[in-house]
C-alpha cells in the first residue's frame, strides 16, 4: 500500500537524498521524494509494511513529519 507524508525542514537536494537513502535502506519501495524549496517542505511517497517505523526514522533525522 502506498503512503504519503509531508516532511517539514527539508531545505535542499541533500535533505531529499538523505530521506531517499534512509527509506531505501529500510526496504521501502516505490520511493518518491519531491521537494518544495521555498517552503522547505518535502512530499514523501513510498510503500512499506510498517509506515510508523518510517515516520520514526525520518523524525530521528530531525524533520517534522505529518500525514
Amino acid at each position: 500500500m502506498s503512503h504519503s507524508l509531508t516532511v517539514k525542514g527539508m531545505h535542499c537536494k541533500s535533505c531529499k537524498m538523505l530521506v531517499e537513502d534512509e527509506l531505501e535502506d529500510m526496504g521501502a519501495t516505490d520511493v518518491n521524494v519531491s521537494l518544495d524549496e521555498p517552503t522547505q517542505t518535502g512530499t514523501v511517497i513510498f510503500n512499506h509494511s510498517n509506515p510508523e517505523q518510517v515516520i520514526t526514522a525520518i523524525e530521528d533525522m530531525n524533520y517534522e513529519v505529518s500525514r
Binding site: H11, C12, S14, C15, M17, L18, D21, E22, D25, M61
Partner: peptide, 13 residues
C-alpha cells in the same frame, strides 16, 4: 558540501 544534510548523505555513503 554546504550543510549538515550533505555531511550526513556522504557519511552514510
Amino acid at each position: 558540501i554546504e550543510c549538515d544534510s550533505c555531511v550526513k548523505v556522504l557519511n552514510r555513503m
